[in-house]
């Protein structure tokens, strides 16, 4: 009944909402929607609940957009950090989960689980 690409052929879902400055790859509305929902499910599995703080430490790009979107969608509080980050930035923050490609940042924090952008999309 529906081909795999049917969603993007209607209603402007192939509209490009962002271009990753790192890779130069475009992000379509459909991709953003799909990845955001996948990220919401993943974060929930990792224990994020409504009202929790979530540290986000990613370079500017589509991963960052998806991460922030997903955290807000969960009803959690997104705490984006400047990138590249300084290790002190995470000290004393009560976040249990951090989304980042730099797991070593969590060493002296109270972060339990670091979710990589790769994992977030999977």
């Amino acid at each position: 009944m529906f081909g795999p690409g049917f969603l993007s052929t209607v209603s402007g879902m192939d509209r490009v909402v962002a271009v990753d400055p790192g890779t130069g790859l475009p992000l379509t509305e459909a991709q953003l929607d799909a990845w955001t929902v996948a990220a919401v499910l993943r974060l929930r599995k990792r224990g994020v609940r409504e009202g929790d703080a979530v540290l986000i430490c990613l370079p500017t790009g589509t991963d960052l957009l998806v991460a922030v979107n997903a955290v807000i969608a969960l009803g959690a509080v997104a705490m984006p950090l400047a990138y590249p980050p300084s290790p002190e930035a995470v000290h004393g923050v009560a976040a249990r989960v951090m989304i980042s490609d730099r797991p070593e940042l969590a060493e002296e924090s109270r972060v339990r689980v670091v979710v990589s952008p790769h994992e977030l999309a999977g």
């Binding site: 969603l7 929607d33 919401v40 807000i72 969608a73 009803g75």
Partner: peptide
């Protein structure tokens, strides 16, 4: 109907993030 989160949000007058949560 193939609407994006943003379009659904506009239709229902809620934020795209809330749409994403409902879909999750």
């Amino acid at each position: 109907r193939g609407l994006s989160n943003r379009a659904i949000g506009e239709e229902l007058v809620i934020s795209p993030a809330t749409v994403a949560r409902h879909i999750a």
